[in-house]
Design a protein around this nucleic acid. Structure first.
Lengths: 220, 220
DNA sequence: TTATACCACGAACGCTTGTTCTGTGTCAAG
DNA sequence: CTTGACACAGAACAAGCGTTCGTGGTATAA
């Protein structure tokens, strides 16, 4: 079942208006733009758009419209974007910079969509420096997005500070009797066993991003 | 001039609400959340936020709020969001699904910000299936974003189909006299040399995304 | 013809929501 | 002490806004 030309214009207008103004339009605003004098007609066609799965409506709420895709997820660019502070670098030989709860103004923010990162609180991002985390399948230049926390679930990928070794490492963590097993991401590599007193969890790794577009050179 | 704790909570609430619901909150919704019974007090504090340059208001418009940055530009509706079709899986033993220029309706779209991906044309995304690309530092479950192309620059990370081996692999590619060098991402691994006739470039890898949030289990 | 969707118009109702006005209490400057 | 800026509460008004109801025109099928 297709859309009428009028319904298509309504949909386009809702999209543009929402992105442009930062809020959805009202029924009367839609009507004025597509040339409908009656609010009930707009209402009628909006319900058609809902039936087609293009928008969602909230009842009895002003501007209670939103653009959705067929899975019901909010789709409009900009709605599901999270800003994460890029705090600095992470390297094997030094503690990672953790976010000061307060007002440390980050040099840089990185925007990520909700498609990629679900959580929002306590997130920060770090550039990986050096090749020391190859065993975690993490390379020089990668960006890791972490959540600050001092504990973790078994199997979580965490950044730990090994006190004796004075070293940061990224591993999956498993609590075992009297010891902690630090399992490299690379399944071909052997786990590392540590005394629980020696490991200090810095945060949980939620996301690894690798961009491969910094080369120039010749066509082959 | 700083913000009061109440004003900070108002600002945070407006941000979260707008992102979450796709529309800004009303004055009364703000008041209810931060514990202000009077709409005039909310109005008063909103004007403070305007004076501080954190939000912009439109007069006599319902939900006429928006988060702005200090340049006055709307900040939440990030302009730079790219939608990329998630076409399927990539595995060692089979050719990768390439996007039909036409109408192949993608099951799923993935939204990425311009912070992460700069290009826009000819992009598609694939789920990595299996552990065969560990040597490219790519794991089971990762998502790779590729650009469809048949040629590549030296040093590009490409997906190649090895005809004789009937195998897909992700490597950095270098043209050398009479042969092609396929260099694993992992610097500890040896390169692979191939006859140019045997390699068929499927596309260039621009981005690798790894999400690590699919485990449950016990607190340690 | 009648029936039945489908699409449209106008009007009215009532809750929603931004705005404004009056009043109160606090605190530092004069 | 007085003054004025600041922060807040409560109430009332008017416009904004979603909803509903009655009506009518135009197709297509029975």
């Amino acid at each position: 079942m297709g859309l009428s030309e009028r319904q298509q214009r309504m949909y386009a207008y809702i999209s543009h208006f929402t992105v442009d103004k930062g809020r959805p339009p009202t029924i009367r605003e839609i009507g004025a733009h597509v040339g409908i004098s009656s609010t009930s007609v707009v209402n009628y066609n909006l319900n058609v758009l809902v039936r087609e799965g293009l928008i969602a409506r909230e009842k009895e709420v002003s501007r209670g419209l939103r653009i959705v895709n067929h899975t019901g997820k909010s789709m409009l660019p900009g709605i599901g974007v999270v800003q994460i502070p890029l705090l600095g670098k992470i390297a094997a030989g030094q503690p990672i910079p953790v976010p000061e709860a307060g007002i440390a103004p980050p040099d840089e923010m990185i925007s990520l969509t909700r498609d990629i990162i679900q959580e929002q609180e306590g997130l920060f991002a770090l550039h990986v420096k050096g090749n020391s985390m190859i065993d975690a399948l993490i390379n020089d230049g990668d960006v890791v997005v972490m959540k600050k926390q001092e504990s973790a679930n078994n199997g979580d990928m965490v950044a730990v500070w090994l006190k004796d070794e004075k070293e940061t490492t990224l591993k999956r963590i498993y609590r075992e009797p009297k010891r902690v097993r630090l399992q490299p991401m690379n399944p071909t590599m052997k786990p590392l066993f540590q005394n629980p007193e020696n490991v200090e969890i810095q945060g949980k790794v939620l996301l690894v991003i690798r961009q491969l577009q910094k080369q120039s050179a010749v066509k082959i």
